[in-house]
């Protein structure tokens, strides 16, 4: 795996709100019956995270489980662990209708961190990011500018953003431009 490189290649845009490449992360799209006991067990076992409710993301260190739709999860594991994880899912769900696919390389992942992070992201998405409406542990799939993205907050001032690999540069530049343009003093005051 020595020659694997993340799409953003470690890019950082420093500032009061910093945008940073989050590097390579193992990601598995898992489609299936989310109420299935075996499915829940293998997900929690692989990630160490609890099983998320609708619209939630749970995490355990770098690992996590993102609720993507009523029949889809995105499992986050370390980049090198994907192969084994897929095998384990295959074993655990053998005979159960499901689809598990490695999408680690199909994504770009970055963080947006700083006191005004909510305002920076709110420049780009129609989602309500007011603290009363969106908090740590919730996940939204929506748009950032003109592309699809998913994001959640790992703490009160940090967003984790996932987008498609081919538009990772666009998404990074868009976030960096929004951060550089300065504060709006709206949600950060809320």
């Amino acid at each position: 795996m020595s020659n694997a490189v993340s799409v953003l290649g470690g890019k950082v845009a420093e500032g009061p709100v910093a945008v940073r490449d989050a590097g390579l992360r193992g990601m598995i799209t898992l489609r299936g019956d989310l109420s299935d006991q075996k499915l829940q067990e293998v997900c929690t076992k692989l990630t160490g995270a609890t099983f998320p409710a609708k619209g939630q993301v749970t995490s355990a260190g770098e690992n996590g489980i993102c609720w993507m739709s009523p029949d889809e999860l995105l499992l986050l594991v370390s980049y090198g662990a994907v192969g084994e994880a897929l095998e384990e899912i295959g074993k655990a769900l053998s005979g159960t209708h499901h689809l598990a696919a490695n999408v680690s390389d199909a994504r770009g992942m970055m963080t947006v961190a700083g006191a005004d992070a909510r305002d920076v992201v709110a420049k780009l998405t129609p989602v309500d990011l007011h603290p009363d409406s969106f908090g740590v542990g919730e996940l939204r799939r929506t748009r950032l500018g003109q592309v699809a993205a998913a994001f959640w907050m790992s703490d009160e001032t940090t967003f984790n953003v996932i987008c498609f690999r081919s538009v990772a540069q666009y998404t990074f530049d868009l976030l960096a431009t929004s951060a550089l343009a300065g504060p709006v003093d709206y949600l950060s005051q809320a």
Binding site: K54, G55, S69, P126, V127, R141, T142, R143
Partner: peptide
């Protein structure tokens, strides 16, 4: 009705 969000038309 699937993900429980109020969604903007642009999404």
């Amino acid at each position: 009705p699937y993900c429980g969000q109020d969604v903007d038309e642009t999404d």
